[in-house]
Amino acid sequence: MFEARLVSSSTFKKILDAVKDLLNEASFDCSESGIQLQAMDNSHVSLVSLMLRSDGFDKYRCDRSLTMGMNLANMAKIFKCANNDDTVTIKAQDDADTVTFMFEAKKQEKISDYEMKLMNLDQEHLGIPETDFSCVIRMPSPEFARICRDLSQFGESIVISCTKEGVKFSTGGDIGTANVKIAQTNNFDKEEESVTIEMQEPVTLTFACQYLNSFTKATPLAPQVQLSMSDNVPLVVEYQIPDLGHLRFYLAPKIED
């Protein structure tokens, strides 16, 4: 028996919004420690990694580990039927071929349940090595989204260059070039608005705008985003989901011409 209850279904709505551009379907691996999802996009350029810890749920029971393959568009249709402040309970029997989502309104005046067929997905899991990154940048997530959106008007790739002076996002194309520089802030009062840079070695890497823009669909999940970079390894774009876990996107770099 698997049962996970979360007071606010809006968190799941936001997660689905954040990954549905990249993934059509995905396996949710449920165990005693929580719910995990790892999946590459169709082009195998990026990887989505979601972790929701069992202790972040209001109720969590997982007698036996199970993997639930779900069509994310259909899951999004079901969550559209929930109000943001509805409580959601996800339920499945051991070895079941369906999953049930139950939504309860705050005052219990409305209870609905939706049963969805599970899919058998043959998804391979990749081993992600522990990395000491050369640069770790934390910045307001809406600012990162804004920069990606702005620069993608001018080019297909963004060069992210991190030095101790700050982070520079650059692009170029037929129109010309665009550069946005972000410096570390000294404003320690407003953590959500701060920019911090931890740099061991300067790093410059090039990434496809299309993917960066997809990742920023996760902006409503967290006020801050963390970018981790080392030479010649994938970028990690991480959104912390408060008290519950994280959503990470890994993006393979482009080789510069």
């Binding site: 195998h44 350029v45 990887l47 391979e124 090595p129 090039t206 890994y250 393979a252 482009k254």
Partner: peptide
């Protein structure tokens, strides 16, 4: 796209 590397070049299969 030209010059785009794949993510599974970096992470081995489990």
């Amino acid at each position: 796209a030209r010059g785009q590397r794949k993510i599974d070049e970096f992470f081995g299969k489990n």
